[in-house]
Design a protein around this nucleic acid. Structure first.
Lengths: 336, 336
DNA sequence: CACCGATGCGACAAGTTCTGTCGCACGGCG
DNA sequence: CGCCGTGCGACAGAACTTGTCGCATCGGTG
């Protein structure tokens, strides 16, 4: 026997090395992994440990041929240490509500065990007289109520793996115009998340051209053994920054914004700052003047447009001209 | 000895009962808690367990007078079971990036240990040749780049606790107009999260009037022993739905939306559906017609306004009139 | 079809660990 | 000062752990 109290630590390590259901692990495999961590232990002991632990934890095994393969049951909630505190559980519930429209289902699915745990904690039956969550907390999400397109879990899994392990990927892709989906190998270079949509950035077959593949348009995907080939000199970060499609920022430097809000419309700004140097003053005509230095982005325009006629852009002149033009075109469109 | 293999389970339970640093727990306390779960165990054993476990886990104790008080070190990362898989770690990283502008710092703080764990998993040094996260994945958040106002962690903590335990709260509040903050008791009735701002809904002192207190305007907050008194017949859920300030939905039923997008502007819609029954057709004038049944919300208006002159609302007539009026007013504002 | 290697598992015995119990040492409090 | 609550060292018997064997199965291979 090497050391005292090895046991618990080893069992702990073992538990962490067992994957959740779709995956699984064999006993020898486990022994090797444990050996890497310095636990010199007999296979027999591992068998015994597994058997014992499976009566305490939601572990299960499946006999493939002769060998036993162990895994966590798929629906096992996360067991975390230190135990989740109510405040953390509340944070998780909030995260769940906020993220639902922002992340694809297949990604959310991975967080699900944590969300489940949070819900358990917030259940009122749990001794502590914690109130029922929805009776006390409400989320009013700001984003539009669009639902993100659904991505097949297997597809996302394959894409993630290929990307992280730097391998090629065979993919059945239904492109926007084509009715019939086509299969071909892709060299995955990076992932872009925008709103609820996920794009795989990569090159198809042997082409040098970098393309975007929306994950929800992939009917199937499978990682290959062949390593990913990347165009010489390609850098994902600079690519994303440079690429038109994803580039929202419109000019490099910040702009000195000057706005006049109708009374009442500017309440938001006293809650959420537009920038750190934001200054708010009352105008003589009753309107609220706001000055702030902000980034010149498309998002800024969307945000301003959301106030429609309740805000007037005073400066910079270029932005004012933009809005003036927009207003003219809109009026023309609906006019007479 | 009651049963075999009790030990690990008991130690596991014990670990979960120990709070993270600001909190702490004593040995007798632990014994009582464990007794509630059916572990009839001597205090001495608990002392021994703690000592042993503290050499394996980031546990620590602090001697207050004579008694030892145990806790998890504040910076301890979450240890979860089953161990976090790379795909889950990616999901957490995404969650982190998306939530930063949506949740107040004090709430995010509670998720931090999980985020930290995810970052650890995605570090490249971990044997597996997982690529460095930022080299492979980019998030382009859709929301505006406003930063949520910062909330003091102690304040949020106190508010959460008071709310969940149904107690009163003493609060030093700096109201919008007043320069000097004032202290008074509040009966907490519920929390509302909207964009990055958190509001406590409640009544002040003995008043019956229900008010909203923004958490970032609270300089201090402390839970009281006195139970929360709620206005007779008050129901948080119906209150939030009814209340003007928070009520975004504008009419009960859904509306049959009909839009004409300029060519190119409707690309989004082929990615993200507006509704399940959405139908997209090509018009003879080159524009893209979209028909969908959607909820009649303010958000819908914001979203449509974001397209400014690139979309025309055709139906329902009421909405078209709204937009027509908005366009006219905007043009007038910037006109001449 | 037989043989080989890999795997699982029951049994065993020696060695470790666990646990209730005592007794002693402190520190605070009345 | 004495009492109480707490921590902790020591002890012994019971319970548990673990390496080792040996046997039974299963799959694949020649």
């Amino acid at each position: 026997m090497k050391e005292a109290k090895e046991t618990i630590l080893r069992q702990w390590s073992m538990l962490r090395k067992i994957p959740r259901h779709p995956g699984s692990v064999g006993t020898r495999e486990l022994r090797d992994k444990l050996q890497d961590e310095g636990f010199l232990i007999d296979v027999r002991t591992i068998q015994r440990d597994l058997e014992k632990l499976s009566s305490l934890f939601p572990l299960s095994c499946e006999t493939r041929g002769k060998a036993n393969r162990w895994f966590w049951m798929e629906e096992a909630t996360v067991m975390d240490l230190p135990g989740m505190e109510p405040a953390t559980a509340v944070a998780f519930r909030l995260a769940e509500e906020y993220l639902a429209p922002l992340l694809p289902n297949a990604t959310i699915r991975h967080l699900e065990p944590h969300f489940r745990r949070a819900r358990e904690i917030l259940k009122p039956e749990r001794g502590t007289r914690l109130a029922v969550w929805p009776d006390k907390v409400q989320v009013i999400a700001g984003g539009p109520a669009l639902t993100p397109p659904s991505v097949k879990p297997e597809v996302q899994e394959a894409v993630y793996r290929a990307l992280l392990e730097d391998r090629q990927l065979v993919c059945t892709y239904r492109s926007k115009d084509a009715v019939q989906p086509k299969s071909y190998p892709i060299n995955p270079l990076g992932l872009v998340f925008r709103d609820g949509v996920v794009y795989l950035v990569g090159t198809a077959k042997d082409y040098a051209e970098v393309r975007h593949f929306a994950l929800h348009r992939m009917e199937a995907a499978m990682m290959l053994e062949t390593p990913c080939r990347r165009p010489p000199g390609f850098n994902f970060q600079t690519y994303v920054k440079a690429e038109q499609l994803f580039a929202y920022p419109l000019s490099r430097g910040p702009i000195a914004l000057e706005l006049a809000f109708d009374k009442g419309a500017a309440v938001h700004l006293t809650e959420r700052l537009l920038s750190k140097d934001q200054r708010v003053t009352q105008n003589h005509d009753g309107r609220v003047m706001v000055r702030a230095t902000v980034k010149n982005t498309l998002e800024l325009r969307w945000w301003l447009l959301g106030f429609c006629d309740k805000v007037e852009v005073l400066a910079p002149q270029a932005l004012r001209d933009e809005f003036s033009a927009i207003a003219k075109r809109m009026a023309h469109r609906y006019g007479s």
